[in-house]
Amino acid sequence: MFDKRRIITIANQKGGVGKTTTAINLATALAAIGQRVLIVDLDPQGNASTGLGIDRRNRKISSYDILVGEASVGGAAVETAVPNLSIVPSTMDLLGFEMEISQASDRAFRLKKALVSEGAEKFDYILLDCPPSFNLLTMNAMAAADSVLVPLQCEFFALEGLSQLLETVDQVRRTVNPKLDIQGIVLTMFDARNNLAQQVVNDVRTYLGEKVYQTLIPRNVRVSEAPSYGKPAILYDLKCAGSQAYLQLASEVIQRERMRKVAA
C-alpha cells in the first residue's frame, strides 16, 4: 500500500552488539537529513524507548497494542525530541505476546498488518528494533520488513553468529517473506588499536563483500553515555567519533536506496 517507504528490521540474535544504539542513531541521522522516521520498539526491555527519552510512565500505548490490534500506528507513535523522528514504545507487556497468540494462524503477520494501519503512511523509513533472540517478535519484524540490517560487533565469534542469522533470513524468505533482503552489515564497536578487530573486518568483507557498509562504528564513550541521558549520541555529542560515524552510515543507507530504486 505504501510503496515509497522502507521498512528495515535491525536484528542480531546476539546481545550487546550495538543493535539498539544503531537503531536510535541511524534513525536520528536519517531524520536529520529530512526523512520522516519511525522506530517500532519490539524489545520488552524497551531500551530504544528509554534511549529516546520516553519515560515508562508515558508509554500508555505500546508496540504490544499494535501487535494485538488494539491500537493503530498513529495512535501509538510518540514524537521524540528529534524532529521528524517518532517511536512506538515498548513495555513489558510484550513478554506475553508470544504465549497469547502462539496458536493464531496469522501469528507471524501481526506487525505487517499493523504497519498499514492509520498513521503509518506518513513515514519514509520504519526501523524495527528487535530483541536479541529469534522469537515470534523477530519473526514478525522480518515478515513485515523489506530488508534486514545487521549490526555486527568486531569480535572473535562475529562470523559464527552472522552465519546463524543469515540462515534465519533464508528461512524467513522461504516461509513468510520472499522479498526479504539483507540491507547491509554494520560493523560496530571497532577498535583500531585491536589487531583482532581489523581481522574481523577483513574476514567479514571477504565473506560478504558489498553487503558490508564501508562505515565502521567505533567504540566510543560518548555513544555509550548518551542513552543514560535519554538522547541519541548525535544529539548528546554531535562531534564525537561515534556520532560522525552514524551520520556517514545514514548517507550510505540513503545511497543504497537510491541505487536500489534505479536498479528496479
Score class of each variant (00 low, 15 high):
residue 2 F to G: 04
residue 2 F to D: 05
residue 5 R to I: 05
residue 10 I to E: 07
residue 11 A to H: 13
residue 15 G to R: 05
residue 16 G to D: 10
residue 21 T to L: 11
residue 25 N to Q: 02
residue 25 N to I: 11
residue 28 T to I: 09
residue 28 T to R: 05
residue 31 A to C: 02
residue 32 A to E: 13
residue 32 A to R: 12
residue 35 Q to S: 13
residue 36 R to M: 08
residue 37 V to R: 03
residue 42 L to Y: 05
residue 43 D to L: 04
residue 43 D to T: 08
residue 45 Q to W: 10
residue 47 N to V: 02
residue 47 N to Y: 03
residue 48 A to H: 07
residue 50 T to E: 15
residue 52 L to M: 07
residue 53 G to W: 09
residue 54 I to L: 13
residue 54 I to Y: 00
residue 56 R to T: 04
residue 57 R to V: 11
residue 57 R to K: 15
residue 60 K to A: 14
residue 63 S to Q: 07
residue 65 D to R: 01
residue 80 T to E: 03
residue 80 T to Q: 07
residue 82 V to D: 03
residue 84 N to D: 14
residue 84 N to R: 10
residue 85 L to G: 15
residue 85 L to C: 09
residue 90 S to F: 10
residue 92 M to S: 11
residue 97 F to W: 11
residue 98 E to C: 07
residue 99 M to P: 00
residue 99 M to T: 09
residue 105 S to G: 01
residue 111 L to E: 14
residue 114 A to K: 05
residue 114 A to H: 12
residue 114 A to D: 01
residue 115 L to E: 01
residue 115 L to Y: 11
residue 116 V to A: 13
residue 116 V to P: 08
residue 117 S to W: 13
residue 121 E to V: 08
residue 123 F to D: 06
residue 124 D to T: 06
residue 127 L to V: 03
residue 132 P to V: 14
residue 134 F to Y: 12
residue 137 L to T: 08
residue 138 T to A: 15
residue 143 A to L: 08
residue 144 A to Q: 04
residue 145 A to L: 12
residue 147 S to P: 11
residue 147 S to Y: 02
residue 149 L to N: 00
residue 157 F to L: 15
residue 158 A to E: 06
residue 161 G to M: 10
residue 165 L to V: 11
residue 166 L to V: 12
residue 167 E to I: 11
residue 169 V to Q: 06
residue 169 V to D: 00
residue 173 R to P: 01
residue 174 R to E: 15
residue 174 R to L: 14
residue 175 T to I: 13
residue 176 V to H: 09
residue 177 N to Q: 07
residue 179 K to N: 12
residue 181 D to T: 09
residue 184 G to R: 00
residue 184 G to F: 10
residue 186 V to I: 10
residue 187 L to T: 04
residue 188 T to G: 03
residue 189 M to Q: 14
residue 196 L to R: 10
residue 202 N to G: 10
residue 205 R to N: 00
residue 207 Y to R: 00
residue 208 L to R: 01
residue 209 G to R: 00
residue 210 E to R: 01
residue 211 K to C: 07
residue 212 V to E: 01
residue 213 Y to V: 08
residue 215 T to V: 11
residue 216 L to S: 11
residue 216 L to A: 12
residue 217 I to A: 11
residue 220 N to C: 09
residue 226 A to I: 10
residue 227 P to V: 08
residue 228 S to P: 01
residue 231 K to N: 05
residue 234 I to G: 02
residue 235 L to G: 02
residue 238 L to C: 02
residue 240 C to M: 09
residue 244 Q to A: 09
residue 246 Y to F: 15
residue 252 E to N: 02
residue 255 Q to D: 15
residue 257 E to I: 06
residue 258 R to P: 00
residue 259 M to H: 09
residue 259 M to Y: 06
residue 261 K to I: 15
residue 262 V to M: 14
residue 262 V to G: 03
residue 263 A to I: 08
residue 263 A to Y: 05
residue 264 A to I: 04
